[in-house]
Amino acid sequence: MHLEEEDFSYSGEALIARPNNPSSISDDEWGDYLFMRKNPKGRHVEQWQHSSGCRKFFVIERNTIDNTIYSSYTMIQASKEIKHETN
């Protein structure tokens, strides 16, 4: 059983952590948080919301070339299981 893609909304690259103390970081660092995204051709860890359903946000790893979905995680799982690579 599959749910239709249109039941979900895309919400960008996942696991972009908001800096803990924004006022103490430089414009460049804040700019990285705001604007810099990986935008890969291939595997991409990204956040979605089940917007026409339970409204939960969750994380999937999707191939941006052919939309293969490799795995999905709750937000809690994602924060524990996916190692966040710093750029």
Binding site: S11, Q49, S51, K56, F57, M75, I76
Partner: peptide, 13 residues
């Protein structure tokens, strides 16, 4: 509404 949900669920659980 979505904006508020997003912050609560993803950043400030």
């Amino acid at each position: 509404y979505q904006w508020l949900e997003n912050w609560l669920q993803t950043e400030w659980p």
